[in-house]
Computed example of a mutant assay.
Amino acid sequence: MIVLLPPSETKRSGGDGPPLRLDQLSFPALNELRAELVAELGALSADVAASRRALGLTVKQDAEIERNATLTSTPTLPAIDRYTGVLYDALDIDSLRGAAAARARARLAVGSALFGLLRADDAVPPYRLSAGSKLPDRPTLAARWRPVLEPVLAEIAAQELIVDLRSGSYAGLGRVSGAVRVNVLAEHPDGHRTVVSHFNKAHKGKLARALATSKAEPDDAAKVATVARRAGMQVEREGDDLVVVVPA
């Protein structure tokens, strides 16, 4: 089983790993486009105004542009440690030990606008590029990633179950047939349900932790739901998709 996470806009600074080596990342079929995007971001960083427009940044976020200028020279961290925010706080990878930590690092993967798909321990620098970013005079990231990323995802899906926790924009970079997708809905006292926005990420992080550390090896939606329920979550099936229901 692979638990496919979204990235985060915020990323931890620093690192103690060597500078980026694309040839050391998982899924080498993605390296040609990775190299193109790294080079394009580096060149774009020389034009601060153009970077702001392309990346949707404000003046106060110019440090993000500086990160892109040093993509190939700055120290790296494992991807699972680089990304931060609500989902990653709930996942709390640093608290895992022993066999649970090993299972989690083997099962977790991250979708990325810059790298396409990363394993948990792939070493990456801090960067700024979102799924909705539009680099100057280039096709959309979805148009560029789909032809190369979807075959990789399909190859993985042919061998093991993918639980896809990515948001819509990142799922659009590479669709995967047969994945278990997860929605989070808030149930109100009168019984009606609404989409959870901010805390959606926290519940997906909790689910990711349960799945990544489970001794079970789910191979369909029903078994994924069983693991989630054992972790105390209220889960319903909708075909091959799951709905996590939380109090409003």
Rank of each mutant, 00 (worst) to 15 (best):
G17P: 04
A143K: 13
D219L: 05
V110C: 05
L211W: 07
G132F: 01
D23P: 00
S73Q: 13
L141N: 06
E155M: 12
L173K: 07
P218L: 10
A171S: 12
E160N: 13
G174Y: 01
L161W: 03
V196Y: 02
A228N: 11
G174H: 04
K134S: 03
T140V: 00
A79F: 06
S130L: 15
P136A: 05
T10L: 11
A100I: 04
A104S: 09
L114S: 13
A102C: 01
L211R: 11
D62I: 15
L25M: 04
P218N: 04
A222H: 11
F115Q: 00
N31D: 15
L108R: 08
L20G: 10
D94Q: 14
G17K: 03
P75G: 13
L77P: 02
R138W: 04
P189I: 01
T70V: 13
A225V: 03
S51D: 00
A142W: 03
Y83F: 14
E32L: 13
E236F: 01
V246T: 15
S177C: 13
D241A: 12
G17E: 04
K206H: 13
A69L: 11
D92I: 02
A171L: 06
R34T: 05
P189G: 03
E9F: 12
A39I: 02
Y83E: 06
S169T: 15
G116I: 03
S130I: 09
V243H: 14
E9N: 08
R107M: 10
A102M: 06
R237I: 10
A63P: 13
T70Y: 07
T84H: 08
K201T: 00
A212E: 11
A179F: 00
R181L: 08
D240W: 01
P6I: 09
E66I: 12
D220S: 12
A222N: 12
T74R: 14
N31M: 10
P139C: 01
K223Y: 06
E64C: 08
V243N: 15
T140G: 14
R97L: 12
H198T: 02
R146D: 01
A102Y: 05
E36P: 05
R67C: 10
G56L: 11
A35F: 09
V163I: 15
P19D: 07
A171M: 08
Q159V: 14
V176I: 09
D23H: 07
L96I: 04
P28M: 10
S51L: 00
R67G: 12
P139S: 00
L153W: 07
D219P: 08
I156P: 10
V163K: 10
V224N: 00
L165W: 03
V195E: 09
D121R: 11
R21T: 12
Y88E: 03
E236W: 04
G17I: 07
G111A: 11
A123D: 06
R52D: 00
A29Q: 14
L41H: 03
L207G: 13
L242C: 08
R34V: 05
L153M: 13
L165I: 06
A79V: 07
E66S: 13
D16C: 08
V224R: 01
S177L: 14
L211F: 10
V59T: 15
L108S: 09
G191C: 02
